[in-house]
């Protein structure tokens, strides 16, 4: 037994322990902290599975942004928690559920052992066709060319999530701005961090996108970094979320899928298939889509954490607001 399998076993063991703790611990805030730790450990697992792209996504979105979202919610829900927790079903029902969940998990594990060897894979096909796009990162190829439809539709899901969250605002707040629920008080340390880190983060986010043509990275991972920088600026009190009625914000939210759709339709006309790229233009077109997408995804992720608008738009007369909130319906 070499050291590597032992390390794998160790990591898997720690992941499981943290997962059990996340489910079992009484206090929800602790559970959320456990989940964040779990997500970070999982990123390690993804690296071990040869998927650095996914490791980046998991660490950034699965752990970081989800954690930010949940920790704030846990704090706000603390007041009513104990009464709801008392509704937990009795021991027999819990045992029954545990038994059934075990059967399901065992079935999945059993399938793992029965999977054919050698495993079916599309890696050779993906390599053989990589020339059509001129990109070296196979995952970017899958996301942007072979299965571009899924990626485009997934942007629609993101937009729907934003719309769904906005639609939960009070009627009077429509057109106003979301207010970050867990915003720190004016604080020198946080402000300093925001001022120092943001430029670095923005460069890094765009770099992660730029290199994704040939190396691990991509629009999502880059966008998450940008969104994190935006949230940091907001939390440090250096900026405000714009009014949701702002035309520019709306455009930022749809530009990703819109460019995707437009270039896709262009492919229908020029090269004969929806979401195909003309020979030789694939790389610049894909990069164009990715740049539109990084803007959309970063804005979306930030807004998903920021929540629904809480205060109404500034009154029409107040010039100080500077943002004509109702420009949407001139």
């Amino acid at each position: 037994m070499t050291i590597v399998p032992a390390l794998d076993l160790f990591v898997a063991g720690v992941v499981l322990v943290v997962a059990v703790w996340t489910v079992a611990v009484r206090n929800t805030s602790s559970a959320v902290v456990g989940f964040v730790a779990y997500g970070l450990l999982l990123a390690l697992v993804w690296v071990r599975l040869g998927a650095p792209d996914v490791a980046l996504t998991e660490a950034a979105i699965g752990s970081g942004l989800t954690g930010a979202l949940l920790i704030g919610a846990a704090a706000r829900l603390r007041a009513g928690e104990s009464t709801v927790a008392a509704e937990r079903p009795g021991v027999p029902v819990r045992l029954l559920i545990a038994a059934l969940a075990t059967v399901v998990a065992a079935a999945i594990a059993g399938v793992l052992l029965s999977l054919p060897d050698p495993a079916p894979t599309l890696a050779p096909e993906a390599t053989a066709n990589a020339g059509a796009t001129g990109l070296g990162n196979p995952i970017t190829n899958v996301l942007m060319a072979f299965r571009a439809m899924d990626t485009m539709l997934e942007k629609v899901v993101l937009l729907l999530a934003v719309l769904g969250i906005w639609s939960l605002s009070p009627d009077a707040a429509w057109g106003g701005r979301p207010h970050l629920p867990h915003r720190a008080e004016p604080d020198a340390a946080l402000e300093f961090l925001a001022r120092v880190l943001t430029p670095v983060g923005v460069v890094l986010g765009i770099a992660v996108l730029w290199v994704s043509a040939d190396h691990p990275g991509g629009a999502f991972q880059g966008a998450t970094i940008l969104a994190a920088m935006w949230l940091l600026v907001l939390m440090a009190g250096l900026g405000e979320v714009p009014d949701i009625g702002r035309r520019r914000l709306r455009l930022a939210l749809v530009v990703g899928p819109a460019v995707f759709l437009t270039i896709g339709l262009g492919g229908l006309v020029v090269s004969g298939a929806f979401l195909s790229y003309p020979q030789g233009f694939a790389k610049p077109l894909i990069l164009a889509i990715e740049f539109a997408m990084i803007l959309t995804v970063a804005t979306t992720l930030g807004l998903l954490v920021a929540g629904p608008p809480v205060a109404g738009p500034p009154a029409a007369g107040s010039a100080a607001a500077g943002s004509p909130a109702r420009r949407a319906a001139p």
């Binding site: 040869g50 998927a51 190829n141």
Partner: peptide, 15 residues
Amino acid sequence: PGDPVPQALVITGIV
């Protein structure tokens, strides 16, 4: 190091 198709699907899934 892995089949890129399921890896790409996971990225979509996480988002």
